[in-house]
Structure formats: structure tokens, C-alpha cells
């Protein structure tokens, strides 16, 4: 091999290694933050509905703090190389998306759009080729949220909130209808999509139990009941 070429390649590899180290450092930080958020959101399952808003207020600052991390990462990644380094932060970013989505649902009962999720995490449109929350990661976040909601349906009833399962049921069915529109390849997203069906089943069972015992508001009760018996 030409010695000059040898040096060139060595240089390229060294700079890649250096960048990887730097990214790793910040991703560790990001990872810590997302774990904190997920841990805090876990408390939802044991928090009465009246105190949930207070809990969300403690999570929001952590989401805010993720904005610094995303900004640093976006600054580190060279132009057009988003997909090259993406694997390093995929998991953290998906948890962050989940946290933002879950907080939004608990606060307003709505699905946070992809764009708003990007905004909440401080990700700017012009970073598109360096750092962004893509469709796939966003959808992973949505699925994680639905997984969590199926637990919440059960736990809300335990805590005496009989309306929550019905709200969750309507919401999850809408999300499921959305997912059904996608042509998924046989990848992780498709496999996780399958888990939605089990979540729906679990939520429907809770709704059924609640409706059968007339614990939920009567206007929605019978409708749900007939649905689940189909």
C-alpha cells in the first residue's frame, strides 16, 4: 500500500474514532436523562389521577434539559452523516420520544405529532441531515406508549379511576387504526406493532369488566360492552 494512502486512511479512521468517543460521552448523558424520565413516568401507575398533573410537571424540566443534549449532538455530527451515527443514540432517542408522547397524552389525551415531538426535544428542522427524530423512532415511541397505557388501564382501575380505561381504549384504537394503514416490512417495528394487538385486548378486557359492573359512566358503558363481545 502506498504510504501516503496509508496515512490518509489512518487519519480518516482516527478522526472517526475520535468523533465516536465524543458522541458516546454525550449519548451517555442523554441516556441518563431518558432513564430518569422513564423512571418518573413509571410512577404514573401508582399515582391517583388527581396528582398526575403534578407528576408531569416534574418530568417536563427533564424533557427540556434534553434540548441541550440534542443540540450538542447535532453540532458534533458532520453534515449528511445522520444515518451513520444514528445507531448510537437510537435507543435513547426512542425513550425520549416515548416520554414526550406519554406526558402529552396524560396531560391532554392527545397524540403528540412528530413535528411537536421534535420541537419538544429541541430538534430543529435544519438539522435534518445531522440529528432528527425520524418516523421510525417516533413510531417506536408511540408503541412504547401504548404498551404503557395497557398497564395504566389496569392500574387506574385499581386506584379507583374507572373512566381512564375507556378513554385509553378509544385512544389506542385510533392509534391502532393509524398503524394498520402502514405497510410495514418484517422488521422490529412490525413485530412491535403486533404487540399493540395484545395491548388492545388487555384494555378491552378492563373496559368490559368496568362496564359489566356499571362502574363507568353509563353513556359509554353499553357501547363498549357490545364492542368487546363481538
Amino acid at each position: 500500500m502506498d504510504p501516503q494512502d496509508l496515512d490518509l486512511i489512518n487519519g480518516l479512521l482516527d478522526s472517526d474514532a475520535e468523533l465516536r468517543e465524543k458522541l458516546k460521552e454525550h449519548i451517555n448523558d442523554f441516556d441518563k436523562k431518558t432513564r430518569t424520565m422513564v423512571g418518573m413516568l413509571n410512577k404514573v401507575h401508582s399515582t391517583p389521577s388527581s396528582e398526575i398533573l403534578a407528576l408531569l410537571d416534574t418530568v417536563r424540566p427533564v424533557i427540556q434539559s434534553c434540548q441541550e443534549t440534542t443540540a450538542t449532538l447535532a453540532a458534533l455530527v458532520p453534515p449528511n452523516q445522520f444515518w451513520r451515527w444514528k445507531d448510537m443514540w437510537t435507543n435513547s432517542l426512542r425513550s425520549a420520544a416515548f416520554s414526550a408522547l406519554f406526558v402529552e397524552y396524560l396531560a391532554s389525551g392527545k397524540l403528540l405529532s412528530l413535528q411537536d415531538a421534535n420541537t419538544q426535544l429541541g430538534i430543529k428542522e435544519e438539522w435534518k441531515d445531522r440529528f432528527t427524530l425520524g418516523v421510525e423512532d417516533y413510531l417506536h415511541g408511540v408503541i412504547t406508549m401504548v404498551n404503557e397505557l395497557s398497564r395504566l388501564a389496569v392500574n387506574a382501575v385499581t386506584l379507583g379511576d374507572f373512566e381512564a380505561p375507556i378513554r385509553i381504549s378509544v385512544f389506542v384504537k385510533d392509534v391502532f387504526a393509524g398503524f394498520s394503514m402502514l405497510n410495514l416490512k418484517n422488521d422490529i417495528l412490525r413485530r412491535r406493532f403486533d404487540s399493540l394487538k395484545y395491548d388492545i385486548k388487555k384494555i378491552e378486557e378492563v373496559v368490559y369488566d368496568v362496564s359489566l359492573r356499571k362502574l363507568a359512566p353509563s353513556s359509554k358503558g353499553p357501547a363498549k360492552e357490545t364492542k368487546t363481545q363481538e
Binding site: 389525551g109 378513554r167 392509534v175 393509524g178 394503514m181 405497510n183
Partner: peptide, 19 residues
């Protein structure tokens, strides 16, 4: 609640094109 269905499907419409 039911009115939320429309935005959700329209969101997913965009995802479908993207995927």
C-alpha cells in the same frame, strides 16, 4: 374524543408515504 381520530389517521398518512 372521537374527533381525535381524524388527526391521528392524517398523521399516519404522512408516515405511510415516508415508510
Amino acid at each position: 374524543m372521537a374527533s381525535d381520530a381524524a388527526p391521528i389517521t392524517s398523521l399516519f398518512d404522512a408516515f405511510r408515504a415516508d415508510l
